[in-house]
Design a protein around this nucleic acid. Sequence first.
DNA 1: AATGAATGAGTTTTCATTCAT
DNA 2: TATGAATGAAAACTCATTCAT
Lengths: 220, 220, 220, 220
Amino acid sequence: MKQNSHIIPSVVKDQRLIAQRRQQIVEGAVRLFIQKGFHKTTTREIAKECGLSIGTMYEYIQTKEDVLYLVCEYIHTQLEQRLRESVSDSDSARESLKKSVKNLFDTVNEMSSLIVLIYQETKSLPKDLMSYVLQKEEEITRIFEKILLRGMEDGTLSVDADSVKLMAHNIMVIGQMWAFRRWALSRYYDIEEYTKRQMSLIFEKLIPRGDEDGNRSASS
Amino acid sequence: MKQNSHIIPSVVKDQRLIAQRRQQIVEGAVRLFIQKGFHKTTTREIAKECGLSIGTMYEYIQTKEDVLYLVCEYIHTQLEQRLRESVSDSDSARESLKKSVKNLFDTVNEMSSLIVLIYQETKSLPKDLMSYVLQKEEEITRIFEKILLRGMEDGTLSVDADSVKLMAHNIMVIGQMWAFRRWALSRYYDIEEYTKRQMSLIFEKLIPRGDEDGNRSASS
Amino acid sequence: MKQNSHIIPSVVKDQRLIAQRRQQIVEGAVRLFIQKGFHKTTTREIAKECGLSIGTMYEYIQTKEDVLYLVCEYIHTQLEQRLRESVSDSDSARESLKKSVKNLFDTVNEMSSLIVLIYQETKSLPKDLMSYVLQKEEEITRIFEKILLRGMEDGTLSVDADSVKLMAHNIMVIGQMWAFRRWALSRYYDIEEYTKRQMSLIFEKLIPRGDEDGNRSASS
Amino acid sequence: MKQNSHIIPSVVKDQRLIAQRRQQIVEGAVRLFIQKGFHKTTTREIAKECGLSIGTMYEYIQTKEDVLYLVCEYIHTQLEQRLRESVSDSDSARESLKKSVKNLFDTVNEMSSLIVLIYQETKSLPKDLMSYVLQKEEEITRIFEKILLRGMEDGTLSVDADSVKLMAHNIMVIGQMWAFRRWALSRYYDIEEYTKRQMSLIFEKLIPRGDEDGNRSASS
DNA sequence: AATGAATGAGTTTTCATTCAT
DNA sequence: TATGAATGAAAACTCATTCAT
């Protein structure tokens, strides 16, 4: 696997300490970024919020943008972890997809503000850091891509080969949409309702004809 | 209909002049916001870009955020106008939806950077201005909602009444997704391919059973 | 003549105002740099000392180093002007040299702290600005070079052609030395004494044999 | 002789260790100060360059300025040592002067950057440390003063008693000038040429009339 | 109406020094 | 003795906004 993360230099040597302090920094920063956004949050506020002196904080990062990068990386890591949990090779691809899409909706619901944060602040990263973050986003999307491909093989999902990438992105976007359109959607749907309707929409298309939900490709 | 736009006070009285100058401001600002984002653009740069002195610019706005609001309003107005153009009451709802979804994809493709701008910078507006912008977004979504409702009535579209809002939002998001995921999608699809695949996905679900594409609901 | 000065961009347009404000800045900065040196003087102190707000000061410069450059340029301009005053083409070269060396000593004496400032802070300039300043120093040295060359032609001074540059530099350094070694020299000599002794040293070598001081190259 | 050096307190007791560590510090610091100057060099950089941890370094100094003092002292010590080497009581004063002036030029040539360093950074020392450094500079100058005085006694040099101090300073300055005006001089002279011309200038004045170069006061 | 010089609070970042281990 | 993480005061510079002309 290729290296997918940027190494932020630190003045401090002790790797364990670096990890711990950066965790502190991220946790403080996330809270503030959600409230006020990246630009309206000052470095001093971040330091205060995470219980470090400004000087100490700067021993673990180089610029304010590094904090944003750490935050994005953290969110993506959380997201990826949650999504991978629900995928098991012992399930059929269709089963796997069902679980993981359901899981996606739940996760987005819970990480709502974090998802919005990623959507809105990624562009504030310097070019090189941004590309790492986008790469990560793609990697996460690939989780669904892989399930779809598996479904093509085991015959439990029907997708046009050329639409696999697109479907994976659709799933991601429809999931995340609950976060960034919540302001409108939550007036009419709660997360269960939302999940149910969107899942049926997604699976309508994906389930092979004559193969009704819950059946194992039956008596054809 | 309720008033859906915020009135930004101006020192200048001549309404025609106000409109003209603000147009200048918006055009300059849009260019810069796309390049560097709202926060990294200075008011001086905006003034320069739109050919006004900083003092003059401030005769037509009150704060930098007003410029962002004007920009958002402008983008939404453009978008709405483009989307309304393709809707005609003489078409069947299904026909209408087809045209307008196609049109949505084209428009998003052309206004790509503007769509992304709205997605990323809306949150920088002060609360009250933001709500105007979100309202506008909802109004635009309602274009599709109305077509869907019309389709329920004229029988050319099949949607569950409770899913109408959701479908309208889905359409909007799948359209805009071409803008904010272009970095990933354009490696595999061009806009035609994207449009074709996404439309078939959307309509699969919406077209009444036994009523294949191109037919007018008939019984044959 | 080649351009020998760096143009520092200013946000302000009015050239007259720029000149006036920069004069203010230089005057304030010189006082502080002499007292505490460039590095230990803060931009806020400079602004305060010259009666401008920090924001206003920065409308006329780009960086703190620009202030140093302006100061160096100012000092050199003062120095050059003073030195050129004493040179007249109607005098013999020897006469001219005598006057201008005397004048150099007087000037260095009066501008003592400024001379020391140049010696000590030039190296704090960024490379490109430094080269302008060194160029200026060379130009000033050329004043003496020219007189020496004239002396070779009119026969009132005897120098080896290849030593002309060197002698010019020697004169400059022996002049400036009164500034940067004053801490030691002034315990034993006052400026008159210093001038008298150093001049006789310089001229001993330069006066053609048999041509005693005060004579006009006359007969014999 | 009076004590001419400042004692910098150290937490460490072992004098041998102190000397050794300070030597390390000076060597590292000199390299950096030459490159970037005193103010632009950080204590961390110094520590790194000399292979000590920042904490350890501070066991041997009290402030950053102490490092500068140590550096100045080191340079002066080097300089003084080199200059004293060439002086022998068995030579005539004139011979001695010749050797030591020649030696001065060579030394300045080799220690060029160090000489410039002293010239430019001495002023950054706190008052009390600076006076030690200036004292040292004077002591070195006294080397030449003594030779001149000896020349007055043994008749091999002709100087006005009141000019002795001045001549000694002149010699020093003309020597050091090769370092701090190298940027201009080296375009026209190399060190040999420079030495030859400056020596003849210095000695012209100093050699008793009728006593040509190389002669021992001959026939009188 | 238009101009653009003036303002200063606020921002990020640095770095000499300390001190617990 | 040696280490290096912690500290926070202080620095340079920016920029939205105002207001006299």
